[in-house]
Amino acid sequence: MASDSKKDKKSKKSSTISQIRQIFKFTYADDRSLPWYMAVAFILPVLVAVAICLVMRTGWLTWILTILLGVMVGVLLATITLTRRSDRVGYRQMDGRPGAAGAVLANISKAGFDFPQDPVWIDPKTKDAVWRGSGRTGVYLVGEGDYGRVMKAMNREEERVRRITQGSAIPIYRISVGRGDKQVPLEKLQRTIIRKKVKLTSEELDQLKGRLKTLQMRQSSLNMPKGVDPTKVHVSRRALRGK
């Protein structure tokens, strides 16, 4: 049993290291300044630790502990730097590709958010699409593509949602993803959704999800154009990172 647990720990450690290497390679291929940013993030806390020890004239034991603390903080900051710059590269590569908004929505799991992978509307020619999701903050309609076409599609979808939420004060948020004046950039989509205020209880959210699921099932066979496979417009951020 002890040997099995040791093997599990080793495999998890090697898996984590391998994952970090893949993320680094993926990010460095597009961001050549990454090593410099990570180096600064690591060295700065160590230098601060050394400076504190010199000013305070501490003993050797305090020196060791302070430097170790600086190293641990440096590793943490370097990891955070890698993650954030990797996200920037991922968003930049996804931006403008069909299904990019859906890939971002699928990664939102806070506050009970639920965004089905399949869009509720898609234009077979332009690949403009609208996704519908929910959370304790309300109902979301997220569009991707030409602003005018997406807004018209959202008008129809909002009417459908209002029929099943009639008599309630559940808010419906409309978000168009893009680089226009009235649009939200892809890299700010998740933040825009999460920052809304909580409006529903867990019980109310469960009821809402049930109604939206029923509505989704009704639309799946009627609203989706023939010959269009919605799974082909998805973009996997995991794949972009080389995982």
Rank of each mutant, 00 (worst) to 15 (best):
54 L>N: 07
46 V>R: 01
52 I>H: 09
50 V>Y: 08
53 C>M: 14
64 I>V: 15
46 V>S: 00
79 T>R: 15
43 I>D: 02
40 V>S: 01
51 A>Q: 08
72 M>A: 06
40 V>W: 05
54 L>A: 09
36 W>P: 00
73 V>H: 15
32 R>D: 08
43 I>G: 04
83 T>G: 12
81 T>Y: 01
79 T>L: 14
40 V>D: 09
84 R>P: 02
60 W>L: 08
68 L>Y: 10
82 L>N: 00
60 W>D: 04
77 L>T: 01
55 V>E: 12
84 R>H: 14
73 V>L: 14
42 F>K: 03
61 L>E: 10
33 S>M: 03
35 P>G: 03
71 V>K: 02
73 V>Q: 09
58 T>K: 11
38 M>Q: 04
39 A>H: 02
33 S>N: 04
81 T>E: 05
74 G>P: 10
80 I>Y: 11
51 A>E: 13
54 L>G: 13
70 G>F: 10
35 P>H: 07
75 V>C: 07
64 I>Q: 11
70 G>E: 12
69 L>W: 08
70 G>W: 15
56 M>L: 09
31 D>L: 07
64 I>W: 12
68 L>K: 13
45 P>W: 09
42 F>I: 02
62 T>E: 10
51 A>F: 05
62 T>Q: 06
33 S>L: 03
78 A>E: 05
55 V>Q: 11
44 L>M: 04
68 L>V: 13
57 R>F: 07
62 T>D: 08
49 A>V: 12
77 L>G: 00
61 L>Y: 08
